[in-house]
């Protein structure tokens, strides 16, 4: 097993570029999530978003908006994203994707 990159007290990676798919699986496992293609689609989208914009979507609503912009209504809605990433979807998804904590999520 590859070593887990350094993380902060909330489980977010200290360095987004230290992320690997293996790290994603291990973090998801802590949340009791088994990653499917639907998860990976969102994770890869978030990785791309971070590369383009050097930021995580700042809040849950903006996460949903960004997904909607990219994949349309069927995936860009909070119920779909909540099912994939329980809790606060933006936080859970960013944690698994190795992105910094969304700044405006409580």
């Amino acid at each position: 097993m590859t070593a887990m990159p350094e993380r902060n007290n909330e489980g977010f990676l200290e360095d987004a570029w230290a992320w690997s798919p293996e790290a994603a699986m291990a973090i998801a496992d802590e949340d009791g999530i088994t990653l499917t293609d639907n998860h990976w689609e969102i994770i890869n989208f978030l990785r791309y978003f971070y590369k383009q914009h050097e930021m995580s979507p700042p809040s849950n609503r903006l996460f949903v908006k960004a997904v909607k912009e990219a994949f349309g209504e069927t995936k860009g809605n909070s119920i779909y994203l909540m099912q994939l990433f329980p809790g606060t979807p933006a936080k859970t998804a960013c944690r698994i994707a190795g992105l910094p904590r969304p700044t405006n999520c409580l």
Binding site: Q52, H53, E54, M55, P57, L62, K65, A66, E69
Partner: peptide
């Protein structure tokens, strides 16, 4: 290239503005 001063590039942040509405 804001990494040179350990920050995030504002032009890249801004490019997300229209995505967010």
């Amino acid at each position: 290239e804001a990494a040179a001063i350990s920050q995030k590039a504002v032009d890249r942040n801004l490019a997300a503005a229209t995505i967010f509405g």
